[in-house]
Structure formats: C-alpha cells, structure tokens
Design a protein around this nucleic acid. Structure first.
Lengths: 159, 159
DNA sequence: TTAATATAATTCACGACATGAAGCAAAATT
DNA sequence: AATTTTGCTTCATGTCGTGAATTATATTAA
C-alpha cells in the first residue's frame, strides 16, 4: 500500500515523457508498416492474414471462435471467411453434430500460405533480435514485459 | 565488420523468439485499443484526431503538408479536413500569396479539442511510466530505444 | 504575350475494415 | 408442440485509404 502510494506520487520528468511518447509512436508505426508490407507480400488483406494465422493448434474453427479471437463481430468473420473461401485457402463444412455450426478449416493451399506467413513473421522477429547483442536481449525482453504490464494496468484504469 | 559478422551468426533461442512475438503482439494491441478508446472519448474518428494533433508548432498547415505528415494521399486529406471543417474544429483560408494553396488552421474549438487530446495522451503515458520505479524507467527507456533501432534496421532490409 | 507545363487541391470510383440490426435455420427448453 | 436460444448470414452504414481524372492557379518557355 505504501509502495502503491509512492508510485502514485512519482514525478515523471518532461524529457522522459517526451522520449516515451516518441518511442511508443515510432514503435507502433513500425508494427503497422510491417503489417502493411505483409499484406502486399502475401497478396492478402490483413484481416484475412490474421484469420489464417489462427489455424495453428486447431484443425477446425467456428465463426464464433474466430470472432472472439480476432476481436471482431461475427458478421465481420463471415466476410473474412468469404474472402478466404473464394481464394480457396479455407473451406466450410457443416458440423455433423450440430448443423447450425459451420466448421472452418484450411485447404492445402491455406496451410502452405499460413506456414509461409508464419515463417516470414518469425524471420522478421529473429532479425530484429539479432540486431542486439545477447546481453542486450537479456535486458530488452524483460523491459518489454514490464512495459506490457504497465500498459495493461493503465488500460484497466481507462475502462 | 567482425562485430557485424558475429551478429549475423547469432542464434536466437526458440523461447526468446516466442516471448518476443507475444510481447510485440500484445504491445501493438494495447496501442490500438488506446487509439480506439481515444476516438470514442473525443467523439472523433482517429484520422481526424491525428490531423488535429499536427497543429502544435505551426499555426497554418497545407493539405500537402498534412498528407506528408499523416503519410496519406492528398485526396484523403481533403476528406479528413472536410470532416473537421464540418465539426467547426478547423477552417480553410486562401493563401494570399498563392491562391492555389488553401491554408488550414484551428478554430477556437479546434484548439481546445487539440489541447485536451494532447493532455489525455500525456496522462496515459505518464501513468504508464508511473507504473515503474525510477530505476526501471532508466532501463526500459533505453531498451525501447534499442528496440526501435533494431526494428528500423530490419525495416530497411525489408524494403 | 501566348502556349505549354507544373503544382495544389478536389471529386469520384473503388476496396478494405468494422459495427449493429434484422433475418433464418437448427437446437434446446418449457 | 410452442417458445427461446444459438450460430451464422445479409444488409445498411461509417471509417480509412488509394489512384485516376479534373479544375484552377502559377511558372516556364517559345
């Protein structure tokens, strides 16, 4: 409790705030640009890529499950899956147990595409980490973890 | 050069890659959520908010300049400014020197809005930094700086 | 000075991303 | 058997963004 109070009172110098603002904005933009690059490289809208990437562990997904994981409404999922079906990357099958449900699974092409996208993303991450020394990585990763906690804590305050 | 070669050969363990992937994805999502929250809070589409925030140093901006800074095409700027004019946050005036140019400036309401958005963003950043101890901040900020360099270096490789 | 060219902004047609309301069909409840 | 719930789709709407064509004003060249 004392700890908490102490944190509340902490003064953040202006230069730190300015630096942080700049960093967050730059990092965010980098992520966005990579996403865009990815879309062009794989000739697939970003939403469809994000959907494809959900098929890793499970063989079958439902529209509802996809909506939850992509954090979008169900009607949006219908559109996304329509696109992927049209490109023959994914297929719909009726659930034999409950015919309200349509099970969605990757086609062969879809699997290949998914794997190559995964590979690309991993290579970008690996290259990024390779820009650092071993010691730097051992500092940076925990720092990011701390930042994540902090951001999530603030997010809770916002809602 | 030897240093460089050394870096090239660095092996990234799978657990570090997995951790990094997770972190980047989470942090990116946090930023997106804050952006969305902001839009709702200030009842303004994100693009319009980003445009408003450009008016800090300069009193007048041109469509061309806004396009450059927002990293979008000019026709998009027309739309964004249309929205802001309609909400009476911004106004267009002909450049007396060169009547091809329309100068865009904040109205009184626009200034107020801009200031309050800035204030909000700063407060989020300050709160985030406040979640950490002074020592942690002294580690996290340089780490982010390093990460930014690394990401930018990789970006160069991608293009 | 006129004619050709360059520049600034806008309009228009298009596609991606996303939401929410309304509808339909198949379970599950009552 | 009738009602409610569930899973998905359709449709209307709004945001974000691009690129080609157009209009109006400046600049340059003949």
């Amino acid at each position: 409790m004392k700890q908490n109070l102490n944190i509340e009172d902490t003064f953040i110098p202006a230069y730190q705030l300015a630096q942080f603002r700049e960093l967050v904005s730059d990092l965010f933009q980098c992520c966005q640009e990579r996403t865009q690059y990815q879309s062009e490289k794989f000739e697939l809208p970003d939403a469809e890529i994000r959907c494809l990437l959900l098929f890793g562990g499970e063989r079958y997904l439902t529209a509802k499950g996809i909506a939850y994981r992509l954090n979008v409404v169900k009607s949006r999922v219908t559109k996304i899956v329509d696109g992927l079906v049209h490109k023959d990357l994914v297929q719909r099958v009726r659930d034999p147990e409950d015919s309200r449900i349509t099970l969605i699974s990757l086609t062969h092409d879809g699997q290949e595409k998914m794997k190559s996208i995964r590979k690309f993303i991993d290579s970008v991450h690996v290259e990024t980490l390779r820009q650092m020394t071993t010691d730097q990585r051992k500092t940076v990763l925990p720092s990011l973890d701390l930042l994540r906690s902090s951001m999530k804590a603030v997010k809770e305050m916002m809602v």
